[in-house]
Design a binder for these strands. Structure first.
Length: 824
RNA sequence: GCCGGAGUGGCGGAAAGGCAGACGCACGGGACUUAAAAUCCCGGGGGAGCUCGCUCCCGUGUGGGUUCAAAUCCCACCUCCGGCACCA
């Protein structure tokens, strides 16, 4: 008999058969309730890494489990196929991005099939396919027609190494997310999507997502960064235009002793006094040269410069000196900040450095602040002083009162401000979806008509990171007749940020080959929203926020019926080796190919699911993998060894007692545990429970001679084992299922149900505690009442001995668990 | 600085207020074998006592609290990880 599971043969055999049978194809309308299980699609970088394996192993368990529960499960896979690495490969290795990408896709698709993942490959999509990006372009035009795609000249984050613009989201700590080069600033004409129009809804609707991890919701909340306050207008004597500032603390308005503008603020040039012009110009030049990194670097000294001009505090008519300082950001608020040194730490430091007055306008209730002796700003609550008509008012009340006062006089208004900025989508790159816009001298900016989509990427293009799109050097692409007037015109040569492509792919899976629109509405309504989305936490902000934005927009224009795309979200942890993320530079990469070649897909999957709960980081262990291989061999031997005595289908005997009854109890207990654990995504403990079942059946066989075994009870245990294991280790599950005499895939079986009556034990051991410490245990009938348990516990000689001479204060008895005797 | 999350044996981890350490890895002992591998069985939190069966004490980052009972709940603190960060 084979004593080793021949994984290579078994895996290949079943993968071929599953494909022939179309085991994983799902029809759109088949009467079953739907379940949409989605894993984040990969960038086709070349080959799978362990993070992918983890992601797709988790998704596969969920998809198989839900299928066995009777759902029609949509479980698709595709490729986030546009992006920079393809172009870098072109530059480095002289291979065309398109060819490179399609080769990678072919290789990685093969790897996913080898993993045994249950995808409906008929629904495969790739964002770089014209049949897909045609609709990416079409969706861009919908944004355009609704005024949510616009072009403006803007200071942008520029990566000198990648020679491209980066979205704010792609700048991490002042450096390029991809290559870590410090980001600099440039002024360019760029396309934007107006995500800020959805700030409030993106924030509010987080409350409608109870199935998302708190962590992710908080990260999005911080990213959107809502703050409430007032917009206050400070007139500048001698000028028509005043300075507007946003403040969250209008209650401190009487404490303003200076004003600061961002160096880029348009008013700086107009307001600067003649004698300060040179100094200001020098200051601005220095600020511009500083990269974003050093400018925002930690607690850098705040430097500023008086521009020789004054504005007026609208509440007091007081003269307020105007500074420029690089700590004020043009991108946030109005690019101007009022300085209240007494009640803002940053302003306090700035005022001390430049000798500006500090005026206390909020006094704490328990002491008196003196500007001369203060060592820091007072930012807590208190009572207003030095604040004209508002003296004596509680500062929280004063926020509202002063805002109302400003509004009455037209000096300001209540305002909500967001940190979120519009989404810059232009990329000066080749390998992306072309922005479907034509520039005509006569007609201006003209959208490409829908009938002319897709705007196809030309194949013959030179790849040089020049800072402008390689498409600029491609006359066949650039030169086009204006769609409106027919005159010679030029195409937009920038391509779209790849995050656009991945913001709507989950809709496309429902109708992947649809030609009359981005999707078939009935199919989107059938499948969406995604019931379970699974992927890395690194997408907590970017991808997930953009996808939510797209969905809300599409809902508003009537193209989809849901406002949130992903009902439940599981963010998996990283795969670590020696405590660190696997990376080339650390040389700690474990390749899935090698592991799968050595141990097979089932062992690889099993280990990765068993080693840690899915949300936590997972420490790779070669010995742990070895242990999982050993376990599958153990299952293999157990089931094959029992085959001869199992015979035909047989129901477990009625009213079994003793060991056979105990075996049935173990079987049903395991079904219960595994079901509950999968429901809450505790795959590691689900696998443990299956291991315990295997250990239990081995022990049963060891202790009970064949004549005493109930064949039905044994068959029940073995079949439960195989069926419960199947979502985790689909190949060995299938093979053993057929060996057990079945003629239909294990993956089409109904998920087993446990019988509660069989879980009940006649007698249970309960712990007896004295003052909370375990001092003994007694056997009682499972149905024993607290009183009976107490009686039984107090009859126990050892307990009586320990209680001798003590006064019993009270006794707590928890049925089936314990008796606790409290004594003095 | 602000916001999250986590700290449990040699290791990965388990315990949804009720026997801390399931399951697995590593380790030790035994069986099988000429031998090894594979496999199977048994044993492991720390300390102390002893009639060798068991008994007692201490143990879930630290200190306090709630409770008959706390890894779990509350308060304070320490450490590590993640996110945001001159946000006005």
């Amino acid at each position: 008999m084979e004593d080793r599971y021949p994984f290579a043969d078994v895996e290949q055999k079943w993968q071929e058969r599953w494909e022939q049978q179309g085991l994983y194809t799902v029809e759109d309308f088949d009467g079953r309730p739907k379940y949409y299980c989605l894993e984040m699609f990969p960038y086709p970088s070349g080959r799978l890494h362990m993070g992918h394996v983890r992601n797709y192993a988790i998704g596969d368990v969920v998809a198989r489990y839900k299928t066995m529960q009777g759902f029609a499960v949509l479980h698709p896979m595709g490729w986030d196929a546009f992006g920079l690495p393809a172009e870098n490969a072109a530059i480095k290795h002289g291979i065309h991005p398109r060819d490179w990408t399609w080769e990678n896709i072919a290789f990685m698709r093969r790897q996913l099939q080898q993993l045994g993942a249950s995808y409906d490959w008929r629904r495969e999509i790739a964002t770089c396919h014209p049949g897909y990006y045609r609709w990416t372009q079409w969706l861009f035009l919908q944004f355009f027609h609704h005024g949510l795609a616009y072009k403006k000249k803007a200071p942008v984050n520029w990566c000198p190494s990648c020679a491209t613009v980066l979205a704010n989201e792609q700048v991490v700590g002042g450096a390029c997310e991809r290559c870590k080069t410090p980001v600099t600033r440039r002024e360019l004409e760029q396309w934007f999507l107006k995500i800020t129009a959805y700030s409030q809804r993106l924030l509010e609707d987080l409350a409608k997502l109870p199935g998302w991890p708190e962590k992710v919701k908080v990260m999005q909340e911080n990213w959107i960064g809502r703050s409430e306050g007032a917009l206050v207008h400070f007139p500048v004597p001698g000028h028509d235009e005043g300075i507007s500032v946003f403040t969250t603390r209008p209650d401190t308005l009487y404490g303003v002793t200076y004003m600061v503008l961002a160096p880029e603020h348009p008013l700086v040039e107009k307001l600067t006094a003649p004698e300060q012009k040179d100094a200001v110009a020098e200051f601005i030049a220095r600020a511009r040269d500083l990269s974003e990194l050093s400018r925002t670097a930690a607690e850098a000294e705040k430097s500023g410069l008086f521009i020789g001009a004054y504005c007026e505090n609208p509440l007091t008519g007081e003269r307020v000196p105007i500074f420029i300082a690089d700590y004020v950001l043009m991108e946030y608020g109005t690019g101007a900040v009022m300085g209240v040194p007494a009640h803002d730490q940053r302003d306090f430091e700035f005022a001390r450095k430049y000798g500006l007055p500090i005026r206390v306008v909020i006094q704490p209730r328990d002491r008196e602040l003196e500007p001369e002796t203060m060592t820091g700003a007072y930012v807590d609550e208190g009572i207003l002083v030095n604040s004209g008509p508002f003296n004596g008012m509680d500062n929280l009340a004063a926020i509202r009162a002063i805002t109302a006062y400003l509004e009455e006089r037209g000096w300001g208004e209540y305002q909500v401000n967001y940190r979120l900025r519009d989404w810059l989508i232009s990329r000066q790159r080749y390998w992306g979806a072309p922005i479907p816009i034509v520039y005509c001298d006569r007609c201006g900016t003209v959208p490409v008509p829908e009938k002319d989509l897709p705007v196809v990427l030309p194949y013959d293009v030179a790849f040089k990171p020049t800072g402008q799109s390689p498409l600029k050097d491609c006359p066949e692409f650039v030169n086009v007749a204006c769609p409106r007037c027919g005159a010679p015109a030029c195409r937009e040569t920038d391509t779209m940020d790849t995050f656009i492509c991945s913001s709507w792919y989950y809709f496309r899976y429902t109708s992947p080959r649809e030609e009359n629109g981005p999707w078939d509405r009935a199919k989107v309504d059938r499948w969406l929203p995604v019931d379970q989305y699974i992927g890395g936490v690194e997408h907590a902000i970017l991808h997930l926020l953009y996808s939510r934005f797209f969905t809300k927009f599409l809902y508003d224009i009537g193209l989809v019926g849901c406002e949130e795309p992903f009902t439940n979200l599981l963010t998996q942890g990283m795969v670590l080796k020696d405590g660190a993320k696997m990376s080339k530079s650390k040389g700690n990469i474990v390749s899935p190919e090698e592991i799968m070649a050595k141990y097979g897909a089932d062992t690889t999957r099993l280990f990765i699911l068993f080693a840690a709960p899915p949300e936590r980081d997972l420490e790779w262990s070669d010995q742990g993998v070895e242990g999982c291989a050993r376990f599958l061999n153990r299952v293999w031997r157990l089931v094959n060894g029992l085959l001869p005595e199992l015979g035909e289908e047989a129901a477990p005997g009625e009213n079994l007692v003793g060991v056979n009854r105990e075996l049935r109890r173990l079987t049903h207990q395991t079904i219960k545990k595994v079901t509950e654990d999968i429901e809450r995504f505790q795959f590691n403990t689900a696998v443990s429970a299956i291991m315990e079942l295997v250990n239990g059946v081995y022990q049963f066989c060891d202790r009970v001679p064949p004549v005493d075994r109930d064949p039905g009870a044994v068959r029940e245990a073995v079949e439960a084992l195989v069926v419960l294991l199947a979502p985790f280790a689909p190949h060995i599950g299938e093979e053993l299922w057929w060996r057990l005499g079945h003629q239909e895939s294990v993956h089409r079986q109904a998920w087993p149900k446990y019988n509660p009556a069989l879980l009940v034990q006649e007698r249970v051991t309960v712990v007896v505690q004295i003052n909370g410490k375990v001092r003994g245990r007694v056997m009682v009938p499972a149905s024993a009442t607290p009183e009976e348990m107490q009686e039984e516990a107090l009859r126990e000689p050892r307990i009586r001995q320990l209680l001798a001479g003590k006064t019993m204060v009270k006794v707590v008895a928890v049925p089936g668990r314990l008796v606790n005797v409290v004594v003095k």
